[in-house]
Design a protein around this nucleic acid. Sequence first.
DNA 1: ATATCGTATATTGTATACAATATTCAACAG
DNA 2: CTGTTGAATATTGTATACAATATACGATAT
Lengths: 215, 215
Amino acid sequence: MDTLELMPVRVRITSILKKAIYTGEYHSGDELSLSNVAAQLGVSRTPVREAFQALEAEGLITLRMNRGAIVNQIDRKFIADIFDMRILLESEAAARAAANGMETAALLERLHDLRDHLEALNRADYESLNQDIHMAIWTAADNHKLKAYLLEMWNGPSTGLGADEAQAHYIDSTFEHIDILRFIRDGRPEAAREAMARHIARSRENILKRYPAAE
Amino acid sequence: MDTLELMPVRVRITSILKKAIYTGEYHSGDELSLSNVAAQLGVSRTPVREAFQALEAEGLITLRMNRGAIVNQIDRKFIADIFDMRILLESEAAARAAANGMETAALLERLHDLRDHLEALNRADYESLNQDIHMAIWTAADNHKLKAYLLEMWNGPSTGLGADEAQAHYIDSTFEHIDILRFIRDGRPEAAREAMARHIARSRENILKRYPAAE
DNA sequence: ATATCGTATATTGTATACAATATTCAACAG
DNA sequence: CTGTTGAATATTGTATACAATATACGATAT
């Protein structure tokens, strides 16, 4: 009947460690040992080890043979690299979605609802719709690698914006999303590509504020 | 000196299974059980399980909670998707390498050697230089995500070309490589991008011959 | 005969045990 | 005093044990 999807421990551990690295709870160069992390999280080494391998594949830590893991440098360039790739891939996805004739009516309706009640716009509503929009575009782009890479980059550093800045960001993004989806609806790949590029580039600048340039 | 012995078992298993899937030794929909694969390869379930997780991340199999793995559909579209992404990312890498001022002298010298002795061109020489060129470009592009994604896609399906076709492909590629590296050397990003796109696109067509379009 | 329930079986997910490799640091030779 | 050696220690990599979940199949009720 109701098949409640239970998250494997390894996935939970991966998510916890990823967040800990992005928030700076772990610092660049820190050595992570299986035993310590396992004990700290109250699980055995096996799922921690599997989480380490996932984190290494994502570039967050480096695994050295028989010598454990060290946290990589999560600096301004690391973040900028990710957003440069997101600009390239999200733009491509938007262009392909437009070329493929993606269904946009339902998402545009939800966007118009948000736009017409900006005073009631909260984080949860925005994030939910934001994710639905981007993932719908990835799916419509119809390329499994493109989708997988974008999904991997989706959960990165948080903006760390204050309440007012966050609100402004949500409003800007809502209008940008409307633009993007209209270009997609109208089958204009290049316009959709450029609108998406601007959208991600602005997000990039917002986040890079938290990672000052090296002197 | 055997580098395979320095590899962890899990990496070797991953490579073996990946090849088995790409060569069609395993078919779409096949159910892979940890015990069977472990017994067949003479290792325990632990490294096999870790290999399964790597293969899932790469999109080759699907892991279902408590129900084992099934081999995904490795069909024409799957391969085409990978090459579409390679066109996009290798082109971007070439453009960035050109913009960044990559060092090309040594590689161009090796290429000219090959070009001047086409009658002696063999698979090992070509593959070695081919890999060195592409990876040097990824590195010069200076974006860790771009490099990681291209590396993941590097070992895909083999062309399965006959000896004559392979020889022709090596020769074509050698001249294309020379063009690409000259554009990079001369700091012409857009020319490098387009030359690389053509190079990968031709490779794509070569490989897709082995995956006939569905009727 | 069909559908439902419960037990047996098989397989995965996690924990633990064991083996192999790397690091530490003190004893010792030069 | 400096540098090397090697046992003791610590940590990973792999194997195995145990627990939890899913599947198969037969008994039973309708």
